[in-house]
Write a protein that binds this DNA or RNA. Structure first.
Lengths: 170, 170
DNA sequence: CAAGATTGAGATGTCAATCTTG
DNA sequence: CAAGATTGACATCTCAATCTTG
């Protein structure tokens, strides 16, 4: 452990900036969705991921993995969504160990209504400002971080490409 | 609003990755600190920022701004830290509107004890993997995002460079 | 009234313990 | 017992009042 005590000037700057961006982006995305659609960012992500899954259905653990969430958190969150009628849960027929969460039509409707405003916010805060080259750089850095995280036990088991308004497919 | 419905393939990929990195990094940093030092990442940041301030003291609003937090959140958080004896609060003599939060010796001791493990984690998850050029790219992107966030009302009023183990200065 | 700060209620997250299935 | 999932207790955050100072 011959590592320097702290970080270099430039590393410090990048790190403090990174933490600020993460915090503010979370707040901004949450607030936009809460204000304009009455849902949290977490809710949006759950509905969104389910909407792109076959039969709009995923097991609880898979859903947790795809959203980088703990099982416990997902259990609580889906319980709340079930109360609102946006998701239903049923024990799987095939492997009775699994519980499948399914997006309801009501849940899909909420997603459709919330999506445009959310997409617009993401564009304004992020992609309107980035060149193609910078998008590529961002992606490259994400890959590096995800690799490091995975080596420390924080894996991302294949997140889906999130499309908020998929063709109303099966 | 002639904008495309959603994001391009590469934008999607970068965005989903970005969200996963943010979530996993938060979890990883929180868990390391909680396990090895018994404090949350938020607590670490608060103690850290105070430790670098003149007289280890900042007004509540300034502290909230420097940590990209809401006033309410900071008020709750500092109240908890005060109970543990790591921070004290006193109404300012000069401008009686302000409440100053001051890091105690006990709080500083906790910070000193927690810092090495935290720094090590940040290095392993982030900076060990980045070239100087990539650190610069990361910083450049942060600046872009912070600019966009600021234009939407999510400003960062001059965050300090966080040094967890400052010289035991005044 | 505006700025700085706090408060309480309710929403959400964490951790550890528990339950069920295989 | 291991995997999938839930639960309850407790920690923390958000939002909307409220309080104080100038």
């Amino acid at each position: 452990m011959e590592r320097p005590e702290w970080l270099s000037e430039s590393e410090q700057r990048a790190w403090v900036g990174q933490r600020a961006v993460a915090a503010l982006l979370d707040t901004a995305l949450d607030r936009q969705l809460q204000t304009d659609a009455g849902i949290s960012h977490v809710t949006y992500i759950i509905l969104s991921v389910l909407s792109t899954a076959p039969h709009r259905t995923l097991s609880m653990t898979t859903l947790a993995n795809f959203t980088s969430s703990s099982q416990s958190r997902m259990s609580h969150a889906v319980a709340r969504l079930e109360e609102r009628g946006w998701v239903t849960r049923h024990r799987s027929e095939t492997s009775k160990r699994l519980v499948n969460a399914t997006l309801t039509d009501a849940g899909f409707a909420i997603l459709e209504q919330a999506a445009p405003g959310h997409v617009d916010m993401v564009r304004r805060l992020v992609f309107d400002r980035l060149s193609d080259e910078q998008v590529h750089q961002l992606d490259a850095m994400n890959v590096i971080f995800l690799q490091a995280l995975a080596e420390h036990g924080y894996a991302v088991p294949v997140p889906p490409a999130i499309r908020p308004q998929p063709t109303t497919a099966s």
